[in-house]
Computed example of a mutant assay.
Amino acid sequence: MDTIADGTTTIFNMWAIGRDPKIWMDPLEFMPERFVSKLSRSTDLEFSVLGSDLRMAPFGSGRKSCPGKTLSLPTINFWVGSLLHEYKWVQLNASPVNLTERLRLSCEMTNPLKVKMKPRRTP
């Protein structure tokens, strides 16, 4: 076994961990419910997004968790709800949505989804 020198910086590949079939069933399928359901191979299904459960590591976890998480979770619900309530969303091209990803500094859609927003009501 190799020894890692004291002071070495290590980086965990969360992209690879999130796609590991030993941990996730059908890891390449888009299934956000996997984080709160039996789709995880873990036997312990009870956890909190505010805790240190490593299933949530892609979103930040434990002591290194995002300090704004407690504000962002309700805020995201509010803004997404407001955008869905106030606007009608129309896809600009008629082709099916392609969720293929490409890995760069962050994970991006290979073919970004383009939409147009139309107000649901007049001012």
Score class of each variant (00 low, 15 high):
L45D: 01
F30D: 03
L39V: 02
G62D: 05
R34G: 05
K118F: 14
K64P: 00
L105G: 09
F47Q: 02
S37M: 11
S82H: 13
G60M: 12
V36R: 07
E29I: 05
R55F: 01
F78P: 05
L54Q: 07
S48N: 11
K38C: 04
A16H: 09
A5E: 14
K69V: 10
T9V: 14
Y87C: 04
F30E: 02
V36F: 12
L73R: 02
R121A: 06
T100P: 03
A5G: 12
E108H: 15
C66K: 06
N93V: 15
L105H: 07
I4F: 01
S48W: 03
T122M: 08
R121H: 10
R41H: 11
P21S: 05
S37V: 10
L28G: 06
K114D: 07
D53E: 04
S42V: 11
K116R: 13
I76S: 01
V36P: 00
T75E: 09
R120E: 00
M1L: 07
L103Y: 09
F78K: 12
E86Y: 08
D6F: 04
K114R: 12
T3W: 12
T9K: 13
S42K: 09
T75F: 09
L99M: 15
R102N: 03
K22D: 12
G81F: 03
T3Q: 13
K116A: 08
A57Y: 03
R120T: 00
K114N: 08
L50W: 10
I23T: 13
F47K: 03
M25P: 00
I4W: 00
E101N: 11
R121N: 04
I23E: 10
D26K: 12
P112A: 06
N13K: 09
T75I: 13
E101I: 02
Y87L: 11
K88M: 08
W89M: 07
G51Y: 04
T10W: 10
R19S: 00
S37Q: 06
T8V: 03
F12Q: 13
L113T: 05
D44G: 06
P67W: 05
D44K: 01
M56G: 01
S61L: 01
F35P: 04
P21K: 13
N98D: 15
M56N: 02
S72P: 10
H85G: 02
E33N: 10
P27H: 07
S61H: 02
M31I: 15
R41E: 01
K116M: 14
G62S: 06
I4Y: 00
G18W: 00
P119E: 06
F35Q: 00
N98S: 09
L83W: 09
S72F: 09
T122W: 11
Q91M: 14
P32G: 05
R34D: 01
A57V: 06
L73D: 03
L54R: 05
K64T: 02
K64D: 00
K38D: 14
T43V: 15
T9S: 11
L54K: 05
P67S: 06
N111Y: 14
M14P: 01
S52G: 14
T3Y: 08
A5R: 08
T70L: 12
V90P: 04
T122G: 07
M1N: 02
S106N: 12
R102E: 06
M14Y: 07
K22Y: 12
V36E: 01
T122D: 09
L83H: 10
K114F: 14
G81N: 04
S82M: 13
